[in-house]
Simulated assay, not measured.
Amino acid sequence: MTNKEKSAELVSKWVHVFSCPVCNSPMKVVDLKSLICLNNHTFDFAKQGYVNMMTRSVDSHYDKKLFEARQKIIMESNLYKPLHAWVANVIKEHLKLIKGPVMVFDAGCGEGSHLQRIIAECKNEAITGLGLDISKEGIRMAAGNYEDSIWLVGDLANSPLADHSCYVILNILSPAN
């Protein structure tokens, strides 16, 4: 199974969390290729396993070199280890009250390393990660490195997520309001 198909299957399980960024209607996965809303706004899965849900083009100032350096610091040093452990402990405490699967959303996830570390630290198979960033380069890198989460290119100001769809929202290193 390709990364594109694996991603589409995972999104199919969580399709209820999506809302069309154009018209805010619910979405569905079609033929393991596209996310399509009731009004036929279509967002295709990329071969790398992410979905670009931007409704306009943007010039991100974040490039591949920045994301590679950021990933190296997050994944190869202990700089953020106390933060990841603390956030994971907070999530684990609250999960004691929840039955069933839980979505953890990283708003402005960059290349996905913070989300990946926190989910790994939680050690709970009921958790699925969802990372969103305006930078296509960051999301492409996240999808290439971490296949067990959902990765979206999107705009936080025009979120492709339904209200109240995620149990946890992270915002680490993102300049978003």
Rank of each mutant, 00 (worst) to 15 (best):
I73L: 15
Q48S: 06
K96M: 04
E121V: 00
P101H: 05
K72P: 01
K123M: 05
C109E: 10
E93L: 03
P21T: 05
L10A: 06
K65C: 02
K96F: 00
R140M: 14
S113L: 01
N40A: 08
T42H: 03
S174P: 06
I74S: 04
G108L: 03
C23R: 15
I119M: 12
D31F: 00
E68N: 14
L79C: 01
M103Q: 10
G144W: 10
A88G: 11
T42D: 06
K33L: 12
E147C: 13
V87N: 03
N145T: 10
F45K: 05
A8S: 13
F18Y: 11
V58K: 10
P21D: 03
K28Q: 13
W14P: 01
C122S: 14
C109A: 15
L97I: 08
V29Q: 01
P160E: 06
E121Y: 11
V102H: 09
V153C: 06
I139N: 05
L115W: 06
F43P: 00
N52E: 02
V87A: 08
G131M: 05
N171M: 14
V29Y: 03
P160H: 09
F105A: 05
E111W: 02
G144I: 11
N3E: 13
V22P: 01
V90Y: 01
N145P: 07
A157W: 02
V51S: 08
N52W: 01
Q71A: 14
L115H: 08
D31W: 00
I118T: 04
T55S: 10
Q116L: 02
T42A: 00
V90L: 07
V51W: 10
F105P: 01
K81P: 02
V30N: 09
P82C: 11
F67T: 04
C23Y: 12
E93T: 09
I74W: 01
N52R: 02
P101C: 02
H94L: 07
G131C: 06
A107E: 06
I169Y: 03
N124D: 15
C109S: 15
A142K: 08
I134L: 08
S135F: 02
E68Y: 07
W14A: 01
R140P: 00
F105N: 06
N145R: 15
M141A: 04
N177P: 15
M141G: 03
M103G: 05
K81R: 13
